[in-house]
Amino acid sequence: MINVVVADDEAPAVEELAFLLDGDDRVGQIHRATSGAAALKALEEFDVDALFLDIHMPALSGLDIARVISRFSRPPAVVFVTADEAQALEAFELAAVDYVLKPIRPERLAESVRRVCEQLQDGPAEPELVTVEKGGVTQLIRRDEIRYVQAQGDYARLHTADASYLIRVPLNDLEQQWGPSGYLRIHRGYLVAMARIEKVRMTPGKACVVIDGTELPVSRRALPLLRGNLAANRIRPL
């Protein structure tokens, strides 16, 4: 189990996040802080594995805290929980494990806890980042957040749990680049993250995979390759 600090300058936000984390069996002690100074004090007083930080706090921001603890010999994992999409680049430059946008969805927070546990077990790893644009704003997203990719002519649409992003890269190129990282071409129009497949449905003359409740078709040509990857990913067809 991991012990965490939750820090936000708004007390209701602290309580909401603490409540959600308390429902996760992987989380042990939860220490609350309503300022950056209080978060650092908690680090001095308690054995802490991870911090869930708001970015915008008076005097000492979440980014400031991340800079301070980056000098620790064994820094705790950092997850930013914020309504600000624009700080993702700086957050990942500070080796943040995750960047969760408000309002918080329980399943998205559970994914962050998984990443924290994974880092504590395996050691820190640099996330693969993808540059995207939405609403005229350039952002960075983690590649492991991308559930599947849909071909749209010379473009590709990246689908995450929260949004979709159009990038000017053909699906053929992404297939070559991302194939070694667990992405499989299941159809001329779709590239999927094998680890995100929830179900595989096979009926006479038709097959599809289910990701986040969305059915995606599997072509006859891709079906043997998909079958070969199912066992490695411990997915059983239904």
Results as ranks from 00 to 15, higher is better:
L120H: 05
D49I: 09
H56S: 14
V97H: 10
G136R: 12
N3F: 10
G205S: 08
I141N: 02
E133W: 09
L216F: 06
N233C: 05
K41V: 08
C117M: 07
M57Y: 15
I146G: 12
V149W: 08
T138G: 07
Q139P: 11
S35D: 11
E85M: 06
G136P: 13
F80C: 06
R142L: 09
E111L: 11
Y190L: 00
V78S: 15
Y148N: 04
D122K: 12
L230Q: 00
P224L: 00
L158R: 11
G153D: 13
E45L: 13
V149L: 07
I65V: 09
D122C: 07
L60N: 08
G182K: 09
D64A: 07
I104P: 02
R236I: 05
V5I: 13
L60I: 15
A156F: 04
R108A: 09
D154Q: 13
H187F: 00
V169E: 08
R67V: 03
G189R: 04
I235A: 04
F80H: 14
L226T: 00
R115A: 12
D54A: 01
I211L: 08
H31W: 06
M1C: 06
F19T: 05
R114D: 15
D47M: 09
P127Y: 13
R74K: 13
G182L: 00
G213E: 00
P217M: 01
P180S: 03
L238D: 12
E107V: 10
P12E: 00
V6C: 04
E16P: 05
I69E: 02
